[in-house]
Amino acid sequence: MDTQLIHLNDFCTSYEIEITFITELYNYDIIELKSVDDHQFIPLEELPKVEKMVRLHQDLNINIEGLEAVHQLLERNSAMQEELRLLKQKLNRLDAI
């Protein structure tokens, strides 16, 4: 099944944000974009992340460099949460002995 693609223009119009801001997110490897026939699209599953970055930029005035750092920290946080969940399970098991 092909991934649903969101046209960059539609997204940017709705969020009132410059297209260059989104392409910068792509250039910094924060998000993924897909090009089809010289048009750029946001894959549907990437959309929540793109929206998150736009919200952080618009709500808190965080620039691209800041977003890159935030992105990396959030990824690390999410990996640590998963590790914590697994360690809790292990601890539960050891407590039960």
Binding site: D10, S14, Y15, L47, P48, E51, V54, R55, Q58, D59
Partner: peptide
């Protein structure tokens, strides 16, 4: 609101 979070601006709310 300053925040875009309260109302969907493109994709619907989770």
């Amino acid at each position: 609101f300053n925040s875009s979070r309260q109302n969907a601006r493109f994709r619907g709310q989770d």
